[in-house]
Design a protein around this nucleic acid. Sequence first.
DNA 1: GGTTTTGTTGACAACGCTGTCAGCTTGCTG
DNA 2: CAGCAAGCTGACAGCGTTGTCAACAAAACC
Lengths: 342, 342
Amino acid sequence: MNPERTKATIFDVARQAGVSIKTVSRVVNNEPNVRQRTRDKVLRSVRELRYQPNAAARELGGKRSRVVGLIYENAQEFSYLNDLFNGALHICEPAGYTLLLRPLTLPDPEITEHIRQFALNARVEGFVLPAPLGDLPEVPALLREMKIPFAAITPREPAPDEINILCNDEAASFSLTELLIDQGHRTIGFIKGHPDHGASAKRFAGYRQALKKHSLPYSARLVRQGYFDFDSGQAAADKLLNLPEPPSAILASNDDMAAGVIFEARGRGLSVPGDLSIAGFDDTRFSSRIWPPLTTVRQPITKMAETAAGLLIDKLNGSAAKAPEAPFECEVVIRESTAHLA
Amino acid sequence: MNPERTKATIFDVARQAGVSIKTVSRVVNNEPNVRQRTRDKVLRSVRELRYQPNAAARELGGKRSRVVGLIYENAQEFSYLNDLFNGALHICEPAGYTLLLRPLTLPDPEITEHIRQFALNARVEGFVLPAPLGDLPEVPALLREMKIPFAAITPREPAPDEINILCNDEAASFSLTELLIDQGHRTIGFIKGHPDHGASAKRFAGYRQALKKHSLPYSARLVRQGYFDFDSGQAAADKLLNLPEPPSAILASNDDMAAGVIFEARGRGLSVPGDLSIAGFDDTRFSSRIWPPLTTVRQPITKMAETAAGLLIDKLNGSAAKAPEAPFECEVVIRESTAHLA
DNA sequence: GGTTTTGTTGACAACGCTGTCAGCTTGCTG
DNA sequence: CAGCAAGCTGACAGCGTTGTCAACAAAACC
């Protein structure tokens, strides 16, 4: 009752509640086979003593570390990482799990060794695997071999019987392209994303579908390969704008590249969106901070990360596998970098 | 010798080396009073068996959790956080420490309770305390009360006998202002940073000093309060540009606000830097991605975080306190948002 | 050379939980 | 109402370290 100076242990709770430590353990871990009255009694003592199980003892005694690892590509957009982390943490913390971060620098020939070391050293029980790590074949393979469950966020090829968090990239790309078509654009350039990212193919597919639906011709000359970075976006824009019949709109597979396109357009004295409409993907922090603010697509990353962490923890806790989630909806954010063709 | 299927324990090492487990423990923890020959023998076995001490057992047996906490303001610039985290992790990982992140949303009336809970639950041994958390009086006070050491990064008032990582914000601000003066600007607006950030006062001081050195009059009308966010930067720019004698250059206390200024200038049809020179602080990710790329000041955050984590771990390991570090140097990055007065 | 001091090593008890298993209660069956 | 299964509870042995303390060896001292 009096605020103890030293932290309460399971023994203190057991004594106060008049039961054995094992029963306290059962209650705290929500195990079955405890009478309701006993359970209540224990829970009261737990509250009164502000008992918090000692994580180290728990891990040593049982076999569970309650550590969830979040590995990610270090070069990823920070806002993406931040949303990812916040979402996962928001679920892990109240569930009593510790979330550990581990950046990875790609390409990394020793990536499996790095992940293995991290998993072993940090005693990671399960991984949240955001893009593009889920797309590297060796990463899921390693985790399967190590028998560590994981929740893949937007993997290229969702494996059945595993946790996959998807979003309808393709549909969003389709809508964005359609938006430009509706605005009167007929020559629409497209800058592909990094080929190692599953999302790249989907975004490209959505673009082609929209052209098809509106019976616009597809021209390979209007499509350039990019790598999700500013410079490759600028370089691609340079090529596209040098075309004999340059596009009146350019769709870049992410905002960084779109920013590169704007940069290149400005350098040529083109007005955006007057002379050239530009749209991106991801709604990064600076999308609304540059001039003109960027039309783009927003993924509900935080929600996706929450769901990933939640399903993963359910699995770690031995819950029955849930039915696969429906893909998350992306949202097209229309700002001022796109306009009707003059 | 043969690759064991299960992880080696201290007993395995002891048996292989022909010593007691206690001696192995001594060697692994670099304790004194072990003969060199014995030490070598043990270390060889450690390597051969790939022995890694079990962190949970270590914590339970001894009292050290080897967890370093990094608490931060969630609204902070992502690139700042990213550099901070990478720097700290880079030191913690090889030192055998786990780095745990905990975002905080300010203002938070229960901040001390949140930090206390985090420290207790995660058994944090020491904190890295980046700006602006070191500037809130209650945070250092709480940690002192809990007797948890911390390394403050750019605190407003560095406490003696504690770990403080400083940088010469003021000198950098001075240089930046001087740059504008050298470019012929005589009416230079200044947008202050958030009053809760220690850096705000320093940046402002550097500005005033530069004016003074060059005998330019200081006018309070040219100074507006901002809050480090885009909107407050834009609002401040609006006021400044409405002045009867508007400034020909504006210095914003961070890049977000500088972006707001550019935004406002564009909205008024002003050309940057033709009609208005603009400079910021922090060299955030988008500084070089907007048009025009921003003249700004770069702090060596990664290095500062590395130093913070290193000194903190030294302290946790009981090393003698080092002499205080000299402040880190900021670097003025000159890009295209500033130019000579026409 | 005996005695003290210092250095080196090991035995063993924590640390605070969970897992196993046995024992005691209930409630149910026939 | 005996007999048995299922539900509930507790005793106790780990889990892999570190801390304490005692024992012994080596070096330093008088």
